[in-house]
């Protein structure tokens, strides 16, 4: 059902990579589809009922027959979004319910001001705090931020937040090849290489027990660094 908000968001494509999120996916998609007319779910070879849940929603569903990692799923979604000529803004969002739909709207509003090519959600900015991240997670995020600032020169405060908005042109520069979590750094590197103007805005992130259990363990940050160095 097209709502007035749908009309305003006609040129926005929301890309949501999904891997085994059946538990929360329906609620997430209902919420996002109510705001955005084009929601692209990339099912990354889920073995649960995620794909059927996505198909039952109003989202467009692309399905990877094999699990290829979140970065690969985002890239697939971007490519589909860019095939549609009306798309002028692409938003990426996690599927585990940690991001709020109204924050996605704020990102779009921000990018529409026209002075930046990319808007990134940050857990570290402003009053939003880090949404109850545990100590270990906070330390790991800080480390990732320091490494990224050093390697890309971008003054970001949060590097692994899945909520982002890109202009069409910026999205078309993405060639994500790191299948696993290193794609977050890869996105920032692509932004740096293309001298994209970026802005960060504070977003709330709800770490439910569910998302925490799905999130990567801090040990994985070692793998991310090795992945990036080994290219």
């Amino acid at each position: 059902m097209p709502t007035s908000q749908h009309q305003q968001m006609q040129d926005v494509a929301v890309v949501i990579p999904v891997f085994n999120e059946a538990e929360v996916l329906r609620a997430v998609l209902d919420d996002v589809c109510a705001t955005f007319p084009l929601v692209i779910v990339v099912d990354d070879g889920s073995s649960d009922s995620s794909k059927d849940i996505a198909r039952a929603s109003e989202a467009v569903v692309l399905s990877h027959v094999l699990n290829r990692g979140q970065g690969a799923a985002i890239q697939t979604g971007l490519e589909w979004a860019l095939r549609r000529s009306e798309t002028s803004v692409v938003v990426t969002m996690d599927s585990d319910g940690q991001h709020a739909c109204h924050d996605a709207v704020r990102l779009v509003d921000r990018i529409r001001l026209g002075d930046v090519d990319c808007v990134l959600g940050s857990r570290m900015l402003g009053s939003s705090g880090d949404g109850g991240a545990t100590g270990m997670r906070r330390a790991m995020l800080r480390l990732a931020v320091r490494y990224t600032r050093f390697s890309t020169g971008l003054p970001v405060t949060d590097t692994h937040n899945g909520l982002r908005a890109f202009t069409r042109e910026t999205a078309s520069h993405m060639r994500l090849r790191h299948a696993e979590m290193a794609h977050a750094s890869e996105i920032l590197e692509t932004l740096a290489v293309n001298r994209a103007r970026i802005a960060e805005i504070p977003v709330s992130v709800s770490y439910s027990d569910y998302s925490r259990s799905k999130g990567q363990s801090s040990v994985n940050s070692v793998n991310i660094v090795v992945d990036l160095l080994m290219r």
């Binding site: 692309l62 290829r68 990692g69 690969a72 697939t76 589909w80 095939r83």
Partner: peptide
Amino acid sequence: IERSITELVRQQAIDAAEREN
């Protein structure tokens, strides 16, 4: 090889969605 597989999987996903569309 991994990258080629990803490319194949992506192309298949896009083609299937296109056909359905």
